[in-house]
């Protein structure tokens, strides 16, 4: 098929930029390891509390190393369960020191929920039967709102939690 000369230039330019763009994405994903949240572990959605990560005592924020934390959350309509504090009260807010590495892991006992820490790149889907997870490092202090960004029923817009990133000192 014949292509006009200008069209050939246009296509070569366009397709080369496209290839370059895809290479950048690929290097980011496979060399730098920046993959989208795609955890493959499964769990029985009716028995999530039996799973190691989501046992009552493991919910919420846990320090696992000098600078490393794990946050385990059970989502259900219309609330995020971060466990209970030492006095047995429901945790309504967590505080994470700035600069720490945090692994978020979450699952749901009912329908699909979103898990988005507004203003950050922490954004993943939480689906029944699966555990999803995502690692991040908080570089800026501030109050971030964790919101459900996937429709989960009449109270969907009320599903939220507070995460505060605080100074180490």
């Amino acid at each position: 098929m014949h292509l006009h000369k200008y069209e050939r230039i246009w296509l070569i330019f366009g397709i080369s930029s496209l290839v370059l763009f895809l290479v950048v994405l690929g290097v980011g994903a496979f060399y730098k390891g920046t993959q989208p949240p795609s955890h493959l572990a499964t769990v029985d959605p009716t028995k999530v509390e039996e799973h190691e990560a989501f046992r009552e005592e493991n919910l919420g924020l846990r320090k696992v190393g000098e600078n490393d934390y794990i946050v385990s959350v059970i989502a259900s309509a219309f609330n995020y369960n971060f466990g209970k504090d030492d006095e047995g009260n429901t945790i309504r807010k967590i505080e994470i020191p700035v600069g720490s590495n945090v692994l978020f892991q979450a699952t749901t006992t009912d329908v699909i929920h979103g898990f988005q820490l507004a203003g950050t790149n922490v954004n993943m889907m939480v689906e029944p039967g699966y555990i999803n997870s995502l690692k991040t490092t908080f570089k800026k202090t501030g109050t971030y709102t964790l919101i459900c960004n996937e429709y989960c029923g009449t109270g969907h817009h009320l599903m939220a939690f507070e995460v505060e990133v605080i100074d180490n000192e």
């Binding site: 950050t120 919101i147 960004n149 969907h156 817009h157």
Partner: peptide, 19 residues
Amino acid sequence: LLGAPRRSSYSEYGGSEQA
């Protein structure tokens, strides 16, 4: 870009500053 979710009714998200 500021984080506001789609498909959600009006909500102040418990008085969150971001919301």
